[in-house]
């Protein structure tokens, strides 16, 4: 499963990292708490969140996330614009809400990460 597959499954828009869509995704981590991402996300996860602030992007970079999916709306917050431009991590946005987004990804084989396990 690649980010390109995920883009299709979630009917997502690519905000940045079009050239990185061949990256493989095995596990995901969904939450709306940056502190939880920093504590439990581990490396190599796809981060799924409805939080739309620059901290998500910094956190994704720090955690070596394979990408970020912003759920619940394609329109990124204006405060995110500059960070989106400079992001080292591919960013996708979908109109789907969190539960459906996670359900679809799980159905297609993206698994949950083990709490606190660094892969």
């Amino acid at each position: 499963m690649t980010l390109r597959d995920i883009k299709d499954i979630l009917d997502a828009e690519v905000l940045c990292g079009e050239d990185l869509l061949d990256k493989e995704v095995k596990t995901g981590f969904a939450c709306d708490l940056v502190s939880e991402m920093l504590a439990f996300a581990g490396s190599g996860n796809l981060i799924i969140t409805s939080l739309k602030n620059p901290h998500v992007i910094h956190t994704a970079e720090v955690m070596d996330a394979v990408g970020v999916v912003f759920v619940g709306g394609r329109n990124p917050n204006l405060a995110l614009a500059k960070q989106i431009e400079n992001s080292q991590v591919p960013l996708l946005a979908t109109d789907l809400l969190m539960f459906k987004c996670c359900g679809l990804l799980f159905q297609h084989g993206v698994l949950g990460t083990k709490r606190g396990c660094i892969q």
């Binding site: 708490l33 940056v34 502190s35 939880e36 920093l38 504590a39 939080l51 602030n53 901290h55």
Partner: peptide
């Protein structure tokens, strides 16, 4: 609301 302040910072730093 920004996604911080969950009370996990110091514990996470220790880990």
């Amino acid at each position: 609301e920004m996604g911080f302040g969950a009370g996990m910072g110091l514990a996470n730093m220790k880990h």
